[in-house]
Amino acid sequence: MKAAAFHYHDPRTREDLMGLLGRLDDLKLLAGGQSLMPMMNFRIVAPTHLVDLNRVDGLGGISRQGAEVRFGALTRQREVKASEIVANDLPILTEALDHVGHVQTRSRGTIGGSCCHLDPSAEIPAIAALYDAIFEIGGPDGTREVGYADWHLGMLTSALDEREVLEGIRFKPWQPADAGHGWGFYEYARRHGDFAIAGAGCLVDISDQGTIERIATVVMGVDAVPVRLREAEAALVGARPDRTAIAALVEAARSIDAMTDPQVSATYRRRLAGVVTERAVLAAFQRSGITQ
């Protein structure tokens, strides 16, 4: 189908954008359009005003800022995937991007758009959950920042108010790879580039004594939002990165209250949650340089 009619606005400056956000009612913000455009073509979404962010100055770009890596919200997924900064500081994000859509959708799709749309099986929000990323929000009344836990409120729902825009996302890298850092990402989809049925990511820092200093594990596609296995993570600090540690995380993943749909039952999703978690954690432990 074709999109229903709308009024189109393509502001060039942040100031113009804020002016439109303050003034217009029933508006939608258009970033890369790889989710919004299909929804508009299906007429699931038919806003009166479409505000295109693509020509606004200064909304893109990847930079190191102190101990953090900052992404302008409009940074294309393709650019993130090709970035040296990302490959070095946030290697799990580079790997996860291989699974984000296809080359044609990554050319347009943005990191911010993915974090605002919040599909339950989207990889980028799951990685943001893993790092407890910070979201920079702007609006006509000023700016504010929220952490991931306060950003992702539910199925397809972010903390953005209708008159606000996501301007940037900041990730704080863990230890460098040569200092005992490991990471792993694994997902299962029916075809390459399809929405995953389940996926998992894991970050770990291993101490000089060979024990877990810090660990984060996320499971996506199983519940409506990416699930961090926080209790199991906390219990593993100081433990050895071995089979017992993996089993504890797998157990936690299999206890997630899984979604069910006509193709994929909750039981199958939970089983798969265990499998993808096991593979992601194992990869993280192996990459940390510890083999047991």
């Binding site: 455009m37 073509n41 080359v103 044609q104 347009r108």
Partner: peptide
């Protein structure tokens, strides 16, 4: 709606889905 790829064209050097771009 961005699934089949039949509409792929190259815009400013990058392959894109022309049905998902205004």
């Amino acid at each position: 709606h961005g699934v089949c790829g039949a509409c792929t064209v190259i815009v400013d050097g990058q392959p894109v889905r022309a049905c998902l771009m205004l």
